[in-house]
């Protein structure tokens, strides 16, 4: 079954052109022409990827992203907008978007980025532990449900937390460097800052480590990256 892409775009010419190209690449594509319609479609149809304009009638693209995330949807969102300022980009990604492209754009690059997003999703859904619970040191992580059961009880994990932790688990015992983390968890350049990676690691340690200041599972390898070990 082809991957379903939802194009949220109020300019009919653009929406039709993108649809034409995506279909030629073997995707199935649909169009929503305003923000409110987009929210309803995303929640009801769960497309594989959403290509989202920002300046939209009904509800802005930022609002759409915020709303569907608040409803628990983890559908990957790629912004495609004329608004290219750094503030807009950061805002869009902070609201839970996965990638950000500005108009005018190259359709080839758009398709590449859609494929990259789908690859990351595919990687995340694949083993190990995609369906089973992953257990270590009294913690259980359910990657499919984005949940963890720790000494503190049940915790809802964000998508990025899950992806980063999965990456560490997959490379158990080996160092995972920043580039690999950025590539697998975010998949595009210039975002996020290294600080964001540090913050994610900090949060994971808070969930899983008996003493986050003296980590025994998630180790920092100075100058190289991070390493996960199952045994304390």
């Amino acid at each position: 079954m082809p991957e379903r892409i939802l194009i949220v775009e109020d300019e009919a010419h653009l929406a039709d052109g993108i649809k034409l190209n995506l279909e030629a690449e073997g995707f199935s594509a649909e169009i929503a022409a305003n923000g409110l319609q987009a929210i309803a479609r995303i929640l009801a149809d769960e497309p594989s990827v959403v290509i989202l304009d920002v300046m939209l009638p009904g509800a802005s693209g930022f609002k759409v992203c915020e709303q569907v995330r608040a409803q628990g949807s983890r559908v990957p969102i790629l912004y495609l907008t004329a608004r290219g300022s750094e503030d807009d980009r950061v805002k869009g990604l902070e609201l839970g978007g996965d990638d950000y492209m500005t108009k005018p754009f190259s359709i080839k690059e758009l398709i590449q980025r859609v494929r990259a997003i789908l690859r990351r999703e595919e990687w995340y859904r694949s083993s190990p532990g995609a369906s089973d619970l992953f257990e270590f040191g009294g913690n259980k992580v359910d990657f499919a449900a984005y949940k963890a059961y720790t000494r503190q009880g049940e915790i809802e994990l964000t998508q990025k937390e899950c992806m980063l932790f999965k990456l560490l688990v997959e490379n158990e015992g080996n160092v995972v460097d920043r580039d690999k983390i950025l590539d697998n968890v975010w998949g595009y350049d210039r975002y996020p800052s290294s600080r964001t990676v540090d913050n994610l690691i900090f949060r994971l340690r808070k969930y899983f480590e008996p003493d986050p200041k003296e980590p025994v599972y998630i180790h920092t390898v100075y100058g190289a990256g991070y390493r996960f070990t199952r045994e304390a």
């Binding site: 004329a82 108009k103 754009f105 359709i107």
Partner: peptide, 25 residues
């Protein structure tokens, strides 16, 4: 400025999109 950039970029974006499409497909 926001509206103008939208009004100018939209037809440009569309033109580029269709030009690429004609060239590549």
């Amino acid at each position: 400025l926001s509206a103008t950039s939208h009004e100018l970029k939209t037809p440009l974006t569309s033109l580029r999109l269709y030009l690429d499409t004609l060239r590549d497909r």
